[in-house]
Design a protein around this nucleic acid. Structure first.
Lengths: 141, 141
DNA sequence: CTACGTGCAAAAGCTTTGCATGCGT
DNA sequence: ACGCATGCAAAGCTTTTGCACGTAG
């Protein structure tokens, strides 16, 4: 996994650079988000607890917030009610969610760049493509 | 308002056609959504109560659901936490939301059609543009 | 007249917060 | 040693649900 550069202790640097501390919980939460590619706070808790380690849900919420602030993870809203987090470093992408079967399709930013450019040109609006979720119906449905 | 055809008693037809009853509460909620152009369930309750009429929040939720099912209104997620409803019949549009100032910009579907077409062509995905919300930063921020 | 819709109140999620203890720096 | 981070438990919100009564069709 060369692309991300998030291999070893990059997460520690990131946190400390912003005045945060590098704690085991933060490492565990980050690792869980990287493993599960789209995870809700609750998913993260379950995943971490799978490999033992007692971790509190409050801490998950606070940690996800911090990790997002320092740019290690991002969130999007894949269902009408539930934020899902994913690690950054992978190619930036946005999501297509099928309302019929629930399938989630990740699409590279490139395919949205024309759209983003159009919005910037017409409205001076800088769209945050990485947070975008498009609902609709997939090919199979 | 020729386009919408939602002028007079169309709402009654719509409801009855799907086996629902036309009630005063449903009329009040629909009217409130049309007046406030982007309303949360709570906004709707407040607006209706302004012109007296006791109406329960539970009823608002149930009514919004029904009105959306019969195609009289739609919802989108303009903030990370709160669905906002708007009447259909107006030109279909999607939303740009500025994270800095909170401004909400409505954009005609036309400006998103190229994007929708691209998604259909590449992924066979039929995007629901009317539900789309794009977060980012507006020209003033 | 039949049964769908409403109001009320309680329950169910999900997320946040206060405080004392523990740990990173 | 200092003070941020965590765990625990309780509070806060938004949304949902059960029931008895009212009312549209």
């Amino acid at each position: 996994m060369g692309a991300a550069g998030a291999g070893s202790t990059d997460w520690q640097e990131r946190l400390r650079a912003r005045g945060y501390r590098a704690t085991p919980q933060r490492e565990l939460v980050l690792a869980a988000v990287q493993r599960l590619r789209h995870a809700t706070p609750d998913d993260v808790l379950s995943e971490v607890r799978r490999t033992s380690a007692s971790l509190n849900l409050s801490t998950v919420y606070r940690t996800l917030e911090v990790l997002e602030e320092v740019g290690l993870i991002r969130h999007a809203h894949l269902s009408d009610r539930a934020p899902t987090y994913h690690a950054m470093g992978e190619d930036e992408h946005f999501h297509l969610v099928c309302r019929s079967c629930g399938a989630v399709l990740s699409v590279g930013s490139a395919e949205g760049s024309a759209f983003v450019d159009a919005l910037r040109a017409k409205h001076g609006f800088a769209a945050d493509l990485g947070h975008l979720t498009v609902f609709g119906t997939c090919a199979d449905c």
